[in-house]
Every structure is written in structure tokens, then in C-alpha cells.
Design a protein around this nucleic acid. Structure first.
Lengths: 234, 234
DNA sequence: GCTCGGGTTTGCGCTGGATCAAAGTGTCGA
DNA sequence: TCGACACTTTGATCCAGCGCAAACCCGAGC
């Protein structure tokens, strides 16, 4: 691991306020893994024997139903922890994580968790904060799914992606990893057909630009208006 | 607080393995409150200045959308913590909690959290476990809402209530607090009309018995079959 | 015992989106 | 350069469940 990597890593919330030598000790206990696009980081129902920190790339957390339908629970960005079931007293992963692009992760053996959390409070605290934030976010999605129309849900999903991984370009804000209509459908509980129709309609209105596995939000604000209930049908 | 109360309380997961004198200290820092039916324990958006332990009764955690629709996030049973936003680094409650029946809660000032979690590991650990379990459960609901038909969702919701608060009677398993069609609709993202039709249909098939604010599941197993995908339409 | 109000049932028409089907179209490997 | 495949668009049809409306029923309080 290069020195540059290390300094970047040191800035992550998980390691905040940790002395350099402690950081070294923690990092030495982790293995760095390269995950190819579309490969799984860990599998639903699998033994939770590791927890991970995503260093580079984007991964999606996916739950598969008994009859094979998939639901994308969330996307993980660089710097975020994933597969932390173990830390929450679970023995098996409740979902799979799949690399959306080539990724680099740090993997710690799960049994190290209690020790790490105890020795380095920032580690525990920041994890629990993350979990708290995810719980709230997930609850918000329940509310969305329970009360909103498909159009609003898709708008919300895009806005969430924009906020999380948006990259400014001259055309607008680009979601900076390959994402298909199908993926968006799996985030919002609809079908790729409906997503396609929506994106086409939005494109005509100048709200977004999109292409094969690519979405750019041109006018976040108007999209936001759409996402919040009743927008005029002009 | 009576001696009986105390011994019951000592058995709760949160206090597991805590020495009696420690338990006393912790309890002395809490106030015991009586919440009348339909009264709020805490309010969405409100300052998270306390966290609570439900001692007796049942409370529902509710999120209200900007346009006034309500979604029931979960029901809280005796012995469970609620309003723990503070412990997860949030400064404001993301939802309201309303007493479904007359309740008794213990309330600790939020600022005590770090101290309590540090002094009594079981307190912290069990809380995080709870949060982890809730996160998973909430994610499971997202999957349900995204992939299942209304009938399956309602079936799942009832089964969840049965497992959580079911009380065996000679007719079947009774959900032991008043619950209206509207409540069930708000748990499953549908309307009270649809819930009413479903319950009537199920009653005819002998799966449940229900009345005003009351539901008894007669045949949990058949309901379970319904909840899991394709049940034969006999 | 009667009335009032909140909860429930039921009918009916309508529509948002799913489903089915088929025809583009951009991209990558050979 | 040329497929071939994976992703996308678009059309046509259908139906689960919503919205609206009205009647009903039960329990609480007078």
C-alpha cells in the first residue's frame, strides 16, 4: 500500500482522530482485495466472516427474493464500510454486495471487530453512526415506497445517487458509474420499461440526459420538484 | 418503583449481566412516565433530548409525509428501547411514537447516553444489536414493498405482529392491542378498503377472525403460505 | 334505550403501471 | 469491419388496487 493511499485513508471518518501508529496497526490487520466488475464482495446468507471498507469503486448491495427478483438496497461509495453484519451481532450477511465497477476493498476478519471497536472508539462510533444513518435512510425509503407514485420514487432515487456519487460535468451532474434502467427499476420497485419511459419523458423536458448505462441530471432542482408530490403537468 | 418491577426489568436484554447496584444507579437516572393512549411519546422532528424504554403497553412509530399521509414504521413492545436517535448521532427524532394503549416508559436524558454505554457495555451492545436487527427488518420491508402484491404484504405484516405481540387464545393468536384496518393499511402501503376486503376474504376461508380494532390469526401456517408468493387460489 | 361517531363493509368505475411483444441501437470482441 | 449481445425504446393490452360514495354496525356516553 502506497504512502499516498495511507494519507487518503487516514482522512476517512472511520479513522478520525486515530494516531498514525494505531492506524498502521489497524491497517496491517486488513487484507486489500481487488474485486472485478460484477464480482461479489460477499454473498447473501453467507457466513459473515469479514467486514469491508470500500477504498475505490462503487458497489451495490442487493437482496434477492426466493423467486429470483432483485432489489438494490443501496450503493456503497469509497470510504464507506460494508458487510458489517458481524458488528451488529449477526452471523450471516443479509444481502450480497456486487462491484458496480472494478473495486478495491480492505477486508478485516470479523472476529477482530470487538477488539478494534474497543481499542479505537472512533471506529465503533463512526460505524454506529453509519448504521444509524442507514436505518433512517432505509425507513425513508419505506415511506417512499408506501406512499409515492413511481415517477416520484424514481426521481428520488436519482437525486439520492446524484448526492452520493454525482460528478459535475458541463452537461449537468453525472452519476459516475454504469447504471442501467434495470438497476434503477430495482432501486424503486418498478420495471425497466417504466423507467425507460420516464427517462425519455424527462429527457424531452430537458431534466436529464441519459444513454446506455449512463444518466446525467441536467436540472436537479426541477427533478426535485417532481420528486416532491404534485408538480404541474406542463 | 416496586421491587417486582425491578426484578422484571433486570431480566431485559438491555440490562443483561449488570450488577444489581449498577442497575439501581441506571434506573435512578431515569424518570418513569405514564403515556395515555393516543398520546405521543416523542414527536417527529423534535429535539432528541431523551431516549426511552417501553415498560408496559404498545407504541407505534409513525412517519408523516409532508402531505399528511402516515406510515407506521414499526410497533414497539414492552422491554424495547425507542427514541434512540441520540445514541446514533442524530440530534432530532426521525419519526413520532404514539401510544397504542396506555403505556409506561422510562425516560433517560439523551446526554447520559455516552456515559451509560461506556459504563455498562451490555447497554451499548444490546442497543446496537437492536438497531442492527431493525435495520435488517426495515430492509426486508423495502424488499416486500418493492416486489410483493398487496395481499402478501398484508399477510406478512400480520405475521410479524403475531410473532411480536401475539397472545394465544382459544380461537387462535390474537394481536393484543387495538389495531384498525387503517393501521394495517399504513403498515403495508395500501388503503383501509383493500385491507378490509382482504380480511373479509380471509375470514371466509377461516384464516383469521377479526372485528372492530381486533384481529385474531386462526391459521398462521396457511397465512404464511399466502405470504410467500404463489398460493393456490382455492 | 337511543343517539352519535368512529370504524367497517361493499359496490363501481377508473387508471397507473405491469406484462407481453417486438423492433431499434450502441459497444465490444473477433 | 462485422456480427452478436446486451441494453433500450416503444406499442398495445390488461388488471390489481385505488378513489369515491354510500350504507352499515358496534360501542360509548347521555
Amino acid at each position: 500500500m502506497s504512502r499516498l493511499d495511507r494519507s487518503l485513508i487516514a482522512g476517512l471518518p472511520v479513522f478520525q482522530g486515530m494516531a498514525p501508529e494505531d492506524l498502521d496497526r489497524v491497517l496491517q490487520q486488513a487484507r486489500s482485495l481487488r474485486i472485478a466488475k460484477d464480482q461479489a464482495v460477499f454473498e447473501q446468507e453467507g457466513e459473515a466472516h469479514s467486514f469491508f471498507l470500500l477504498l475505490d469503486g462503487h458497489a451495490r448491495v442487493v437482496k434477492t427474493t426466493p423467486d429470483g427478483q432483485q432489489v438494490i438496497v443501496r450503493y456503497i461509495s469509497p470510504g464507506e464500510l460494508m458487510g458489517i453484519a458481524h458488528a451488529l451481532g449477526r452471523s450471516t450477511y443479509p444481502a450480497s454486495a456486487v462491484a458496480a465497477v472494478d473495486c478495491v476493498v480492505l477486508a478485516w476478519p470479523g472476529h477482530l471487530w470487538p477488539e478494534l471497536a474497543e481499542s479505537f472508539p472512533s471506529f465503533g462510533t463512526s460505524t454506529y453512526k453509519t448504521v444509524g444513518a442507514r436505518l433512517q435512510e432505509t425507513q425513508a425509503r419505506v415511506v417512499e415506497l408506501a406512499t409515492e407514485q413511481v415517477e416520484q420514487r424514481v426521481a428520488h432515487a436519482l437525486l439520492r445517487l446524484v448526492k452520493q456519487t454525482g460528478k459535475k460535468t458541463d452537461e449537468g451532474i453525472l452519476i459516475d458509474f454504469p447504471i442501467s434502467r434495470q438497476d434503477i427499476a430495482e432501486m424503486t420497485g418498478t420495471t425497466l420499461h417504466t423507467v425507460s419511459r420516464l427517462l425519455t419523458a424527462w429527457e424531452e423536458k430537458g431534466l436529464v440526459k441519459s444513454g446506455r448505462q449512463k444518466v446525467t441530471v441536467v436540472e436537479p432542482h426541477r427533478l426535485f420538484v417532481l420528486a416532491e408530490g404534485r408538480a404541474d403537468k406542463s
